[in-house]
């Protein structure tokens, strides 16, 4: 299988993934009833009339987790090519390749420990 064809197939998968919901919902439009009333359009709030705006404030901690996520996700971007090439690099330069990654991960772990000590991970 050549390189380009693989990505054509990936594209076919994505197009099919879009086509299924679109087709099913379009077909459903012909089958399902459609009798809108204003009462049906009220936001659900356990049966009581909704109070205030629904786009409410939420806990700032979500942002801290998002920040942590970005840091460690970028780390994986670096880890993956390193892991793929590890066996080759080990025969070339020896365990220096492991030490290098240890240093990199060490700095990130300091960040995790800092967040840990600051009780960012506690959620209370």
């Amino acid at each position: 299988m050549d390189y380009a064809e693989s990505y054509v197939i990936v594209t076919v998968f994505i197009l099919l993934g879009v086509a299924l919901p679109v087709a099913a919902l379009t077909m459903g439009r012909l089958l399902r009833p459609h009798q809108p009333t204003t009462d049906k359009g009220i936001s659900y709030e356990s049966g009581v009339d909704p109070t205030g705006d629904s786009w409410i404030q939420f806990n700032v901690r979500y942002y801290l987790f998002a920040l942590l996520f970005v840091i460690f996700d970028v780390e994986t971007v670096f880890l993956y090519p390193w892991a793929v090439a590890y066996n080759d690099l080990r025969t070339d330069v020896g365990l220096f390749i492991l030490v290098e990654m240890l240093i990199f991960v060490f700095f990130l772990v300091i960040g995790l420990l800092y967040a840990w000590k600051k009780k960012v991970l506690e959620w209370t």
Binding site: A24, L25, M27, G28, R29, L31, R32, P33, H34, Q35, P36, T38, K40, G41, I42, S43, Y44, S54
Partner: peptide
């Protein structure tokens, strides 16, 4: 599910 009315909240 296919035969259920499709309700989109007003807001």
């Amino acid at each position: 599910l296919l035969l259920k009315e499709d309700i989109i909240p007003g807001k």
